[in-house]
Structure formats: C-alpha cells, structure tokens
Design a protein around this nucleic acid. Structure first.
Lengths: 146, 146
DNA sequence: GACGATGGTCAGAGTCTCTGACTAATTTGG
DNA sequence: CCAAATTAGTCAGAGACTCTGACCATCGTC
C-alpha cells in the first residue's frame, strides 16, 4: 500500500524540517529581517516571553555558553534582544526579546502556519493529526527539556 | 485525548532528529570514528554507492561547492573518501566513499536501527508506521530531490 | 564563614561558510 | 563546425561560528 521509502527515520524527519526552516528564513529576509544569521536565529528562537538565561539558551541550543554569549552580543547590537539583570540572582542576566524580535516572530509564525496548512492539504487532516500526535509522543523520550 | 503540544511542527520534527543525530555521533566517537566533524559527516552522508559529484553533494547539503570542496578535502586526508575521475565528463570527479566510510556507516546504521526500535517501543507499532508513512508522503512536497 | 557549584566573561585558536574571480570541459544554436 | 552560454571545479580572502581553557562574582550548603 503506502509506498514506504527506504530512508531512515532521521532523514525523513530532517527533510521537512529543513524545508520549513528555509521557507521561514526566506520570508523573514523578504520582510526586511535580513540582519541576523541562522545561528543567531537558533538562539533567539529559544528566548521565552519573560526572558531566558544565557546558560539555558546555550543548553537548549546545544552550544557552549561562550558561543551563546557571542551570538547574543550580535543580536543585542542588532536590537533584537536586550539583557536585563535577573532579579533573583545577581550573577545572572535575562536575555529578553525586543520589539524587533516579536515583529520577526509574527512573520515567522505566519509562515509556519501557512506551511502547516500546505502539509495538511497534502497529507489529509487525519494523517496530519497522526503525525503531530506521534511527534508529540516522541518528544517525551527525545527532548531533555520536555 | 492525546495531549497535543502547542509546539509548531518544525520544532516537533527537529527534536527527535537531533536526538537521533546525537546518538549516532556518540556511538561513532565511541567506536573510534572521532576524526571527522559534524559538517564533514553531513557531506559524507550524501555520497552514493557509486560516488557522487561535488556539485551534487553541495546542492543536497545546501552549501556552496567551495565549502563542499573544503570539507571533502578534509575527508580525503582522513581517508574517508577518494576522488576518482568521472568517466562521462572530463571536468568532473566522483567523490567515492572508502572502506573507512563504509565501516563507519555500518556503526551508524546499527544505532539508527536501535533508536528506531526504541521509538517503536514507545509509540507502538501502529503509530510508528503512521509516522513513517506521513513523513514519506511529506517528502513529496519538501524534498527537491525526491 | 569556608567551599563547591553555578552564571557569565575574556582570550585565543580552529573550523565552517561565504563571495568573487578564474580555468577547463560540455552543451547549445546558428 | 564553431562561438556562446552553461556547468564542474578550484583558488584566494574574509567573515562567522564554535570550541577549550582560564578567570571572576555570586549562590547554596554545611
């Protein structure tokens, strides 16, 4: 029945992921958000609504805190984020998204919704739901921060 | 019913992908294959059984041919690949995997199979099949080389 | 209050990636 | 058949990313 491909599941996961990421980057660039790099974006993506510590950003992005610091420096210079003191810990600072970041996020979210709609149109509603359900379940054993 | 997460599908795809990749790299390093980098691996992964042209490797890895050439140079020095003339085109050379690459691939394939088995144990056979089915279908509209 | 752990920075080096310019071979069109 | 456009690949240089190691300040614990 279903023409099962012989590719391993890793590749099958990666292909649509990369396709989606490419679409988002293209849309952001077209909207004028072309002053940040993919590496910076991968860090910025992980900033929570109330700010996130550098160390936590580094862990989630799986880079060293030095690298994260370097990338946040760029983002700060480009006005995407600012660092505010963490009221609960004088050592720490919270990396917070600035308006520019939220504006970019709005664009990005729009594209993601659009692509998800395209995928649903191709797969059918049932399969799309099954896909998200399986992936959500998988997160339990693959996401250290789940 | 299913506790659907609110994460976008991109993140949902990325998380298990990265978990799998991490497992593979760890196993390869443990088996002694620690003399290549992730960037080199992403190129090596795309070499076909009969060799692949540099330009094609670059396209599929979504990097420039200059970068691909740089990475293949390293892989060649480390004896993972060799370049042989393309009999059908005197301009071109085929990047071919060497024995060392096939040995590493064997390790990698083993780990992938192992992880897939773990995932199937967690999801159940039915959901795992649905997952692969949906991803395979998705490939039709997300993989330019499908 | 001393001590180990945690949050973060500074300095330096190595790796990855790109743009631009170039050569050689192939393909196309007249 | 041959000139022009295309394609495969390389060289050179610069910028971006990432790491290891060393370091300081603060926090939490005993």
């Amino acid at each position: 029945m279903a023409a099962e491909s012989d590719l391993n599941t890793g590749v099958l996961l990666f292909l649509p992921y990369r396709a989606l990421e490419n679409r988002v980057f293209a849309a952001l660039a077209k909207a004028g958000f072309d002053d940040f790099t993919p590496a910076q974006a991968r860090v910025m993506q992980r900033i929570g609504p109330d700010g996130t510590r550098l160390t936590e950003l580094a862990e989630q992005a799986q880079i060293t805190k030095q690298t994260a610091g370097f990338l946040v420096d760029q983002l700060e210079k480009a006005s995407y984020v600012r660092r505010v003191p963490d009221p609960t810990d004088k050592r720490a600072r919270l990396v917070c998204g600035a308006e520019k970041a939220w504006a970019a996020k709005e664009i990005a979210d729009g594209v993601v919704a659009e692509v998800e709609k395209e995928w649903e149109a191709h797969l059918g509603k049932r399969r799309m739901t099954q896909l998200r359900e399986a992936l959500t379940l998988l997160r339990e054993i693959t996401d250290p921060w789940a």
